[in-house]
Nucleic acid binder design. Sequence first.
DNA 1: TCTGGGGTCCTAGGACCC
DNA 2: TCTGGGGTCCTAGGACCC
Length: 408
Amino acid sequence: MDRVIFHVDLDAFYASVEQLDNPALKGRPVIVGARPGTRGVVSACSYEARRYGIHSAMPITQAHRRCPHGVYLIPRMERYVEMSERVMAILADFTPALQQISIDEAFLDLTGTRRLLGAPREVAGRLKARVREETGLALSVGIAANKYLAKIASDSGKPDGLVQVSGEQAADFLDGLPLAKLWGVGEKTLERLAELNITTVHELRSFSEDILCSMMGEAGGRFLYRAARGQDPGIFPAEAKSRSISSEVTFETDRKDEGSIRRALLDLSQQVMARLIRGRWQANTVTLKLRYWDFSNTTVQKTMKHWLTSSDEIYRMAIELLGERWDGSTPVRLVGVGTANVVSADEPRQRELFPDEYDKKRKVEEAVTRLREKMADLPLTRASLLGKRRGGQPPRGPAKDGGASPTP
DNA sequence: TCTGGGGTCCTAGGACCC
DNA sequence: TCTGGGGTCCTAGGACCC
């Protein structure tokens, strides 16, 4: 029996939530991302804004030039997470086979539910209606026999869409789409394929798997071969487990004084450690990422024989890696600190030479993290972080949320 | 004109082991 | 004097997605 997979996707999610919370924004171009004039990009925008050619990932300065009278908002993640959870709860009412893949997207496996729930298309209609009634949000649904095709189907129907693609329709359906609409085919792949005179899904389908593999690499070739046929290339693993946790920051202007960079590294190290602790994770690799003024990137990482126990340890490693990679004068645009080889903190700690010592340090760090969170706005943080923000603002917190209010 | 922040997966080379 | 084949782990870079 064919499987019945739904892919559901909330339309212009962040922008829709903002319009919901502030009805004065309805019908207006709403751009969520960053304040105009700063370094930042569009995270999401309303359909009114798209009419000006604005889209996600566009630099905010460019968006502002295209639409100066738009409403520009800073993301309010907590609110979006809250709305996302409400929507996911509704979806879970339809089936326990629910897989959330991002804040605004999920797969539902409705295979074998026809007798119980009705025909897939009717179920999708009810699902959309319930979400709209209970949350005020619109979502698009794609229905197909696998996740890959369902995902592309939902995208093709946006906004407020409902598109079902049967197995027989798959090839025709894909042939009607630009190559770039294939999930996993980005700018570089598009260029590579164009060099080979492949510009449509139809043309792509005429190549054998062997040839595609020799041209695009083993994994890339296999992926494209299946994608062009609407077969699932297996890009959505059943359960995604966290393998890395990182934080990064782009300076408002490029930096070449070591002090600014060190302060940022300390801040980021604390953020990363706090997230490890909050998620009950442990990790043994530290990564440092640098983006220079010319947008070139470099990363260095170092793996330890023991689990990381404190933000100080992460910070010290980051400084060491900085010494390896930075000449001290090239302007730096972005710094990032991360951890890799992240596993559950409950996992046995065989590699610990001194498990008691580890437990002790970790407990101290947990306490420090809790305190920092509790007193987020107080100068509990290190003295070297103080005075980081200009204009007499407090060191943490408010600056980030100051522009979040959706009041026009 | 300027290009965020959080991730995942793949590739290719080198170290090391059997 | 010549020189295998496989496996695993680590590292750095890059493509891609939301």
